[in-house]
Computed example of a mutant assay.
Amino acid sequence: MIKLDKPLRRELKIADRLYTLVIDPSGLKIAPKGHRKGVDMTWKDLINGDAAIAAALNASLQNG
């Protein structure tokens, strides 16, 4: 198994739009390609089942 000790970046195409996915030791982030602001989620939130709450909160902060 390879340790995740530095960010891993990948490009995604979702509904004809490009996004950047960054996976690092603290969690993951997805943002529209070329933008810094996106949805962040820590591994702890994902494991604890708080993923839906964290995603909704991030979305409300960015839209508000």
Rank of each mutant, 00 (worst) to 15 (best):
A51L: 11
A51M: 08
E11D: 15
M1D: 09
A15R: 07
G49P: 04
K3H: 09
R36Y: 13
K3I: 09
A52H: 06
G38L: 10
M1C: 09
K6Y: 04
I14C: 07
G64R: 10
S60I: 15
A54D: 02
L46R: 01
K44Y: 10
L57E: 14
E11Q: 15
R17Y: 02
H35Q: 15
I14L: 14
N58T: 12
S60K: 15
P32D: 04
D5G: 12
P25D: 06
I23N: 05
K29E: 00
I47Q: 10
T42G: 09
E11G: 11
L8K: 09
L28V: 04
A15Y: 01
L46D: 02
A56T: 05
L46W: 03
V22C: 06
L12R: 14
K29H: 08
P7I: 08
R17N: 04
D24G: 12
M41G: 03
K44P: 00
S60G: 11
M41T: 04
K29P: 00
E11V: 15
A15W: 06
L18S: 06
V22D: 02
I23P: 03
A56R: 14
A52M: 11
R9F: 13
I14N: 09
P32E: 09
K33H: 11
G38Y: 10
Y19D: 01
D45F: 04
L46Q: 02
A15Q: 11
L61Q: 15
V39Y: 07
K33L: 13
A59T: 15
A15V: 08
N63Q: 14
A15S: 10
N48K: 05
R17A: 07
D5Y: 08
T42F: 01
I2H: 06
K37C: 12
K29A: 02
I53F: 09
K3Q: 14
A59W: 13
D5A: 12
L12E: 15
A56H: 05
K33P: 03
G27T: 01
A54G: 00
N58G: 15
L57T: 12
I47A: 12
A56F: 02
A54P: 01
P7L: 09
V39W: 06
